[in-house]
């Protein structure tokens, strides 16, 4: 069998599902990332209340508070993403399996995406109750779309940086200092997109260019991360 034929034979979907199921099962057995991220988000809202000295925020301030909080919460999840593999050498067992190694990237990215979505399901309502002045309902569909695009950006960059950092000596330092600057373009677009949605009489949909920018970011970094991920695993 030629190399290409064998490669095609090793479709990434099946192992991706197996790896993803395992990650979700692990998070259910020993919930670590999601509760920590939720708690962190709500605590940060409280901190913003006192730090800003304001009872209510709206518009671009609200967008900034919400998105920066989600970004920082994501850092916690990214830091934990490969810990289960790292402990007890689980990495080796996965690497020796006859699977396309990018399945690991797809599985970890999807897991992070699901974690972030779950966190937001709690954190965004909490934000609306605790801090947001105007009613969130009019911009909700657009907010969901924007946050989904943000989660996509966080999970593709996050899965790559997590894999990059896990076998360095200072994972907990490398993850935030590399991830945060990398996410600036996504934050710019997302914050601009969310600002009118969280304003008192804002539009129900953001300017298309911000969503396009987010989409472009997702596409570029998703594909790039997918292309270079293999190199982080071969020794």
């Amino acid at each position: 069998m030629s190399r290409d034929a064998a490669r095609r034979d090793a479709k990434p979907m099946r192992p991706t599902m197996a790896l993803l199921r395992k990650d979700l099962l692990l998070e259910r057995r020993a919930p670590e990332s999601i509760p920590a991220m939720v708690l962190f988000s709500i605590t940060t809202f409280v901190l913003f209340h006192f730090g800003l000295g304001r009872d209510e925020v709206d518009g671009s301030l609200a967008a900034g508070v919400l998105l920066v909080t989600i970004l920082f919460a994501a850092i916690l999840g990214i830091n934990r993403l490969f810990v289960a593999e790292h402990e007890e050498g689980g990495f080796d067992a996965v690497l020796m399996a006859p699977i396309d190694r990018t399945a690991l990237f797809l599985a970890k990215g999807t897991a992070l995406f699901l974690f972030l979505t779950l966190v937001e399901v709690v954190a965004v309502p909490a934000f609306a109750i605790l801090l947001l002045g105007p009613s969130p309902w009019h911009g909700l569909p657009a907010l969901i779309v924007t946050l989904a695009l943000v989660n996509l950006a966080l999970s593709s960059v996050g899965a790559l940086v997590a894999a990059l950092a896990i076998r360095t000596r200072s994972r907990d330092l490398i993850v935030p200092i590399v991830t945060l600057p990398l996410l600036v373009p996504a934050l710019i677009a997302a914050a601009r997109a969310c600002a009118p949605l969280l304003a008192a009489h804002g539009d129900a949909w953001p300017a298309a260019k911000w969503l396009l920018m987010l989409g472009l970011y997702d596409l570029v970094f998703g594909l790039l991360a997918y292309a270079v991920f293999d190199f982080l695993l071969e020794d």
Partner: peptide, 15 residues
């Protein structure tokens, strides 16, 4: 890959 079994020092299991 897939034709080799490794019993390493670590158990290579999810705890």
């Amino acid at each position: 890959r897939g034709k080799v079994g490794l019993l390493a020092h670590d158990a290579l299991l999810y705890r």
